[in-house]
Computed example of a mutant assay.
Amino acid sequence: MSLSSHLTELKKKHDHLSMEVEQAQRSPSTDGLEIAEMKKQKLKLKEEIERLSSDVAVA
C-alpha cells in the first residue's frame, strides 16, 4: 500500500469515527466512557495523519 493510499484510508476512518461520535453524543443512552474512547481513537488517527503528511511533505 502506498503512503498516499494509506493516508486516504486513515482519513476515511477518522471521518467515520467523527460521525460515530456525533451520533453517540446525540443518543442519551450512550456511555460517556464509550464516547471518550472514540474521541481518543479519533485523536490518534489525526496525529498519525499529520505525522505521515509531514513525512510526505519532507520527502
Rank of each mutant, 00 (worst) to 15 (best):
Q25N: 06
R26P: 04
E47N: 09
K46T: 02
R51Y: 06
Q41Y: 02
K42F: 05
M1A: 14
L7Q: 02
L3H: 03
R26C: 15
L7M: 09
K13C: 04
H16R: 13
V21P: 02
S53Y: 11
A59E: 11
T30F: 04
E22Q: 11
H6K: 15
S5G: 00
Q25D: 06
L52Y: 08
E47P: 00
E34A: 10
L17G: 01
M38L: 09
A24C: 02
A36W: 04
S54G: 02
T8K: 14
K46F: 07
S54W: 13
K11M: 12
K13M: 05
E47C: 13
S18C: 09
K12D: 01
E47V: 13
L33V: 04
K40N: 11
R26S: 15
A59H: 04
H6S: 12
D31T: 05
K46M: 04
Q25T: 13
M1F: 13
K13D: 05
E22G: 10
E37N: 05
E48Q: 12
L7R: 04
E34H: 13
A59P: 00
E34I: 08
I35H: 01
D31N: 08
K39A: 08
Q41L: 11
V58K: 15
H14N: 05
K13T: 04
V21K: 00
E34M: 13
M19P: 00
H16V: 04
E37W: 04
K44N: 11
E20G: 02
K40I: 09
K42L: 14
E47H: 12
K11F: 04
A24Q: 03
L17A: 03
I35P: 06
H14V: 01
I49M: 06
R51G: 04
